[in-house]
């Protein structure tokens, strides 16, 4: 089973914690605030460290098990540090039947990492998506916020070359 747990790799940057707290204060009373807070935290810290998840649980008064339940449910969230560029290969139904799996294999082989992994130079992380809502363009790959459509295994190297060494 693919079980992820959280870790805190380095001490948390206090300025980022303060910015998270400000964001939480702003949305404290809103119903359904957990996911936006997690998204904010992930974009601030680059991933969701264990200490941040516990902090969010305390601040929103939502049980820790519910916070981690949401984090582990959505493939968008990561509890381990990731590369500068997140490559997400869609394996939703349309992408799957139009060769998404072969595209994923090409990314795995080219990057030399498995799904959930990060390259040693911290350039790329590889993830699987479950439908980006662009089924007409299948198979779809997202790198960061860019959508790449009708990707073929043979085009994978060219796509990666656009990002290598570029800051996200």
């Amino acid at each position: 089973m693919h079980v992820q747990t959280a870790q805190t790799v380095a001490p948390l940057d206090q300025a980022l914690v303060d910015s998270l707290d400000a964001y939480i204060r702003e949305h404290q009373e809103e119903a359904g605030n957990l996911i936006p807070v997690l998204q904010y935290a992930q974009s601030a810290f680059g991933y969701l460290p264990e200490d941040v998840l516990k902090h969010i649980s305390e601040a929103l008064q939502i049980s820790y098990s519910e916070v981690t339940g949401v984090v582990t449910f959505y493939s968008f969230f990561s509890t381990v540090p990731r590369g500068k560029h997140i490559v997400r290969v869609c394996l939703g139904t349309a992408c799957y039947v139009r060769g998404g799996k072969e595209v994923l294999r090409a990314f795995r082989e080219t990057l030399g990492i498995d799904v959930g992994g990060t390259t040693e130079d911290r350039e790329f992380s590889l993830e699987v998506g479950r439908c980006f809502g662009a089924c007409g363009l299948a198979p779809v790959v997202m790198v960061g916020d860019d959508v790449h459509q009708r990707v073929k295994p043979s085009g994978v190297k060219d796509i990666l070359a656009q990002y290598e060494g570029v800051n996200a």
Binding site: M1, A6, S63, Y64, S65, E66, V67, G69, T72, F73
Partner: peptide, 24 residues
Amino acid sequence: NEVQQVGALFPQYRGYETVIGPAF
């Protein structure tokens, strides 16, 4: 969660890999 408001148990992970249990 609802009766005891302890919140020790919640579904973790997704689909076939779902575990009903504590955090992670």
